[in-house]
Nucleic acid binder design. Structure first.
Length: 98
DNA sequence: CCAAGGGCCGTCT
DNA sequence: GAGACGGCCCTTG
């Protein structure tokens, strides 16, 4: 319970127009290889609206999955100024680090 | 308490 | 650059 809340908080600190990776997020909350856990939390997250889950991408630069559909995620991101091509983000500098 | 899943990652062919 | 494996951590049933 604590962890997941921590994750959401971190996520909320990600500014619009930027994204973060599951790995970085995991590290930020203290778990080194808990990327999968993050995904699981996001999917089951109780606050899908107030939490910008769509700003989380794979460390490889791919968009990754999304509970409501990956296209929706992609759409939102591009709307926030992120350039996406073939399901991948082009500017990795847009990745926000804690 | 045990078992299984998941929006993943790094490494090797 | 693309596909295949194995592994790690949390949450939920």
């Amino acid at each position: 319970m604590k962890l997941e809340h921590r994750v959401y908080e971190k996520l909320l600190k990600v500014p619009k127009g930027k994204v973060t990776t599951y790995s970085e997020l995991a590290k930020a909350v203290g778990i080194k290889n808990g990327q999968r856990s993050i995904g699981q939390m996001m999917k089951k997250n109780p606050f899908p609206v107030i939490v910008p889950c769509h700003r989380v991408i794979l460390s490889t630069g791919k968009i990754g999955g999304y509970a409501w559909g990956e296209k929706v995620k992609t759409n939102m991101l591009s709307k926030e100024g992120i350039t996406i091509k073939k399901g991948k983000i082009l500017d990795k500098d847009r990745i926000f680090r804690f």
